[in-house]
Design a protein around this nucleic acid. Structure first.
Ligand SMILES: [Mn+2]
Ligand SMILES: [Mn+2]
Ligand SMILES: [Zn+2]
Ligand SMILES: [Zn+2]
Lengths: 143, 143
DNA sequence: TTGACAAATAGGAATCATTCTTATATAGGA
DNA sequence: TCCTATATAAGAATGATTCCTATTTGTCAA
């Protein structure tokens, strides 16, 4: 049998691997996150999903997102003490963070990906991800 | 008249520049932060300062730290939706974040500092800082 | 040195995000 | 279809941060 590689198939197979039930709520949260381009907070995802499931609770959305981050369907990205923000994009990439509006913009750079981590760090720690985080003003916020 | 370059002198001159009153509380918060090596949260700084000023309020510490970050005496560093963490070290440097215990370890690398930001990003945004953020397990947390 | 006043503070309330608790509902295998 | 481990909704509890306001204080000009 063939296993597609579209996001929904990945979701289904990851859930089955982990014996996580495929509930309508979980599926809806996944779709909402997968579609998001804006590194949404749990509350932002909740607002989206609520349109389809008016009765869903914030707790379910939040818990589900954390589960996703645990099983490799999303990643929790760096914030500034703001609510957690979730990133559905699992490819290696980098972030620009606007200090005015808080928007996080993805960008890609093979150059940056190639960067060598200093030997000392590699020795002392087990590195599982690396990312360049830029801060500054986005197009909208610089006048 | 000579202007020292030790941290306390920098603090005093920045405050005077901005017409910020030099209060015992502000001074104590600065000292506590300047001594910290652990990217403390506002609450961590509060606990330290309280030993010297038992009556200081959390709000004063928190507000003061935010002021410091606004006038270039500290920087708010990336967290994970945890409370804000503050970094008194203003030299360009990089971070290793332990996903288990949350400890943030500084490291330096001229190599990383030299990295070129992609032209597209430079065009679209005004970049004010760049930092490599590594995630993984620290010495204590990897078994 | 003193007085005036803008700025800063303490303390507590309010807000906001997150996590916990528990009674109920349900997905998925037997 | 039935059973049971999981998942859910709802709301309480927690934790961090910010706001509010009466009071205090650093600074400067007289
Ligand atoms: Mn991203
Ligand atoms: Mn640092
Ligand atoms: Zn912006
Ligand atoms: Zn650790």
């Amino acid at each position: 049998m063939m296993n597609g590689t579209n996001p929904m198939d990945v979701f289904l197979s990851k859930c089955r691997q982990r014996n996580l039930k495929i509930t309508p709520q979980r599926t809806a949260v996944f779709s909402a996150l997968a579609d998001a381009e804006d590194h949404p907070s749990a509350d932002a995802v909740y607002q989206k999903v609520k349109k389809e499931f008016p009765n869903i609770s914030f707790d379910t959305v939040n818990r589900t997102l954390i589960v996703f981050s645990e099983i490799g369907l999303a990643e929790v990205v760096e914030g500034q003490g703001d609510p957690r923000r979730f990133d559905p994009r699992m490819e290696n990439h980098h972030h620009f963070y606007c200090v005015t509006c808080g928007k996080i913009t993805d960008f890609f750079s093979e150059e940056l990906d190639k960067i060598e981590i200093p030997t000392q760090i590699e020795q002392d720690f087990t590195v599982i991800s690396k990312r360049m985080v830029l801060k500054g003003y986005c197009t909208d916020c610089r006048k």
